[in-house]
Each structure stands twice: as structure tokens, then as C-alpha cells.
């Protein structure tokens, strides 16, 4: 019930905004107002159920996985003796979650098809999806490694930015907006809470880590790394194209 009221409060500004502009600024008549109201009712009901489900399942699952994968019994070492290389399954879990969720992400499928169109087929939709998914997977795995070792987040992110900037200057111009955006579209509504729960769970179950300082950051990793892999993919496909033209020129 409280969630319902909160959700209504959250959605109301959009409704007001649209109504205000539609009625006073654009002054057109609204097509099919009942349908739009029904849409808003769905949105509110959907958000209430979704947020309740997150509390019931997604958050507990992420924290549970983090706790079990860092359990000294599971790692086979004594209390407080685990070093970073004992946490291999944590990295594997991060990698697989990143890979699986991104490959299935609907927003990315749409972007991939657009990309195939603008590049005239040089970038395939499937190739882009694989490139982004690998980027997210590597990002989450490295992010888990960072939480395990407790190094500063900003070091990694700044290093990643430097790589991205260097890549930007060497990348084919038309891929750049696409590469930058591919970082943003990858993190879906379900993935974000799961990654947050995983990070916070890791930070609170590994001795010496604070959830506040170390727990966040996985989503940041998942947003930066795809930019690199997409540009790298563009290089590869351009190089392949080049070689095919060079060798198959006589066909």
C-alpha cells in the first residue's frame, strides 16, 4: 500500500508535465485519452509489483550469491586468509551474469539493428551484441576483482577513460556515438538491482571491505567497458573488410 502511494507520487510529475504542455503550449487535442490513462494505470501497477518483487527476490538473491561465493568454507581456506586468487568463482559469476543479461537485452538488439543499417553492413547486429556483452562481462568481472582487493574505484575508472579517449581518436568516426551509447543501454532494469545487490553483498561479506566505499561501482564498470569493446570490434571488422578487399580484389 505504501509502495502504491510512493509510486503514484513518482509517476505524477510526468503526467502533469505532459498534460500541461499538451493543453497550454501545443494546444492540440489529445488522441484517445482513455487509452493513455489506462497506460498510466498499467505503469503504476507494474512499478508497484516490480519494486515489491525486487525486495522479495532480486536483492536477496544477489546478496545470497555474494555471501555463499565468499564463504571461507566454500573457498576452502581459513577465516580471513583468503587472497584475491581464491575468489575465482566470484569473477566467473560476475562475468556470466554480465554476459547472459546483456546478450538478452532487448534495447541492445534494437541498437544493433540500427547500427547495421548506418554502417552499411560493416558492423553486424550480432557482432555488436557480442562485443557489448563481452565488454559488460569483463567489466563486471574486473569490478568484482576490485571489490575483493579493495582498491580505489576512481583509479580504474580514470584508467578506463584514458583508454576510451585514446581509442576515440583512432576509431572510425561513425562508430563513436554508437560506442558511447552502448555503455548506457546495456544496464537493464533487472540487471542494475542485481549488480547493486551483488556488489553490496561482496563488500559486506569480505572482511575489511565497507559496503559504502567498496560496494557500489559494478554498474559503472558495466557502463564503461562496452565502449572499449565496441571500438575494438569496429577496428577488427574494418581490418577484416580491408583484408578481404585486398585479397579478393579480383573476384
Amino acid at each position: 500500500m505504501q509502495t502504491l502511494l510512493e509510486t503514484l507520487r513518482d509517476v505524477a510529475p510526468i503526467l502533469f508535465l505532459l498534460a500541461f504542455f499538451k493543453l497550454f503550449v501545443l494546444r492540440g487535442s489529445v488522441v484517445n485519452p482513455m487509452r493513455i490513462l489506462r497506460g498510466f494505470a498499467y505503469v503504476v501497477a507494474g512499478m508497484v509489483l516490480f519494486l515489491m518483487g525486487l525486495e522479495e527476490a532480486i536483492f536477496p538473491l544477489g546478496e545470497l550469491m555474494a555471501r555463499q561465493l565468499t564463504d571461507p568454507l566454500f573457498l576452502g581456506v581459513g577465516d580471513g586468509e583468503a587472497e584475491w586468487h581464491h575468489f575465482g568463482w566470484v569473477y566467473a559469476f560476475g562475468f556470466l551474469v554480465g554476459l547472459a543479461t546483456t546478450l538478452a537485452e532487448p534495447a541492445l538488439i534494437a541498437v544493433g539493428m540500427k547500427a547495421e543499417r548506418i554502417s552499411g553492413g560493416a558492423i553486424s547486429a550480432w557482432g555488436l551484441r557480442v562485443a557489448v556483452s563481452i565488454g559488460v562481462a569483463i567489466g563486471v568481472a574486473i569490478g568484482c576483482y576490485r571489490i575483493v582487493t579493495g582498491t580505489d574505484l576512481w583509479l580504474y575508472i580514470i584508467a578506463a577513460y584514458v583508454i576510451v579517449i585514446v581509442q576515440t581518436f583512432a576509431a572510425p568516426r561513425r562508430i563513436i556515438p554508437l560506442a558511447y551509447d552502448s555503455g548506457g543501454v546495456t544496464t537493464s532494469t533487472v540487471t542494475v538491482p542485481l549488480l547493486a545487490a551483488l556488489g553490496l553483498g561482496l563488500a559486506s561479506s569480505i572482511p575489511g571491505r565497507s559496503p559504502l566505499v567498496d560496494g557500489f561501482g559494478l554498474i559503472a564498470f558495466a557502463s564503461v567497458f562496452p565502449v572499449m569493446t565496441v571500438i575494438a570490434y569496429a577496428w577488427c571488422s574494418e581490418w577484416l573488410e580491408h583484408r578481404r578487399k585486398a585479397s579478393g580484389g579480383g573476384e
Partner: peptide
Amino acid sequence: LLVLVGLALFVRGLEIGL
């Protein structure tokens, strides 16, 4: 199940309304 139904309703609502 709640997440599933919630997300579906939410997306459908966006599509027909927002």
C-alpha cells in the same frame, strides 16, 4: 513472478500511454 508481471505491465503501460 512479481518482477516478471510488474515489468510486463510497466512496459505495456509505457507503450500505450507514455
